[in-house]
Design a protein around this nucleic acid. Sequence first.
RNA 1: CGGGGUGUGGCGCAGUCCGGUAGCGCGCCUGCUUUGGGAGCAGGAGGUCCCGGGUUCGAAUCCCGGCGCCCCGACCA
Length: 487
Amino acid sequence: MSDERKLTSQAEDFAAWYNEVVLRAELADYSPVRGSMVIRPWGYGIWERMQGALDDMFKATGHENAYFPLLIPMSFIEKEKEHIAGFAPELAVVTHAGGKELEEPLAIRPTSETVILEMYAKWVQSYRDLPILLNQWANVMRWEMRTRLFLRTAEFLWQEGHTAHATEAEAREHTIRMLGVYRTFMEDWIAMPPVTGLKSESEKFAGAVETFGCEALMKDGKALQAGTSHFLGQNFARASGLTFQSEAGTEEYAWSTSWGVSTRLVGGMVMTHGDDAGLIVPPRLAPTQVVVIPIYRNDEERSATEAKAREVEARLRDAGVRVKLDARDHLSPGAKYYEWERKGLPLRVEVGPKDLEKGSLALARRFFPEGEKRKLFLPEGEAIASIPDRLEAMQAALLAAAVARREESSYRGVRDWGEMREILETRGGFVYTGWSGDPAVEERAKEEMKATIRCMPDPEFRSDTAPTRCISGEGEARHEVVWARAY
RNA sequence: CGGGGUGUGGCGCAGUCCGGUAGCGCGCCUGCUUUGGGAGCAGGAGGUCCCGGGUUCGAAUCCCGGCGCCCCGACCA
């Protein structure tokens, strides 16, 4: 028996590591239904933190929440022809209810553009009713062939924003604004810095005019599409009859956008920060940021250190820290250390007999600068007072480390097909090249190196000198693009 | 849907080739001793061996037929 208590290392088998971490950190578990998962309290707590932050950002950009139904008439989904073509293979459809076959089958929503715009059409008469800026938190279902916890499951939780505007310019601007919101959220909260940009035709959302995405780099060198924002043009408005009377008195179709992020972000967090000891949860996302562990050798010491631990807990709570006392008596301190480290809890405070004597506390950090020791021994007052700042510092350090990793794994100015393949097959990462715009080049890369164009990066991510030739060797470069193997 | 693997206490596995009282480690319960990096000892609970047929005196084991799950490929947030 190899040590069952240890996780498979990332270097040995990243996919196995991922599965083990998700299960053993108690983020989620497999459910009785293939492809569906149960999100456990620790994982759901992280999602709730994400929801809270995003929801605030949505409100701050003028949105309100609403809720639209799970079941969508098939005829709605069929209205936009690219949309139905894109989603048909992964639809789950309800054909029977109440013991009878339904007159019209009902699709379980894979996304809600069709119903939502149908409703908007009822609510909008004139340009004065626009824009409509709504968001919903919901579950959706896409019948995937291969599933992975958080990264791809048949049912998942997400947020979908749907807006309708009177002008193309406003809708385009909104699409970009929400992409920016996602980027900021990913950097500030998940400490997962994405590259943003425009999706190629083959990767865009079915029914969109343009799709923009946030692409994050995972520790194994693969890209994760972490969020998308779509400019839908008038496509869905036409399909749903969403028209309005303009200021000039003419009848026009509205311009719409949609944008979403899902529980997949939890998987992104795992693969951005986790290490061989388990998860690392950025402090802002951690449902509990600090655990306080009393250490003792007998009943007398137990009551003394537990009392102090409770006091520390109370003072941290007063300071706005999400803190928890772990007073379980049946586990040794060491066992608790391993457990909380596996779950990625940012900071641990140990209170032992020696601390009581010396008026000190031990702080153990889940993530700390290279070369430093995990544990710090500090005077009690200083230790407690420093914790809020330490949490913020850890948050910043995680982002800095992730940015550094992304930059180290970004290969710019690659001009040779073989070189691109060599990089993607051995190291992984983001390869920046020129592209003629020919879809055949994407197709070939997918076949030969399982890589796709993740995006045509936004200006700030582009290389200093723009590529001039297409990576295929044929044709001028019309865009700079980022290639990667993706989840 | 193709290829591979696997199904045995809560978890991880052995046992299957070669049929003969269902085992090991971890976990769990009780007690005592422990507790600053995964505690020790003693006692204990817990199993339709994935399901259905068949062969046999006897099946976890052999035969036939199903099913689940995981991994690898084709589709996707």
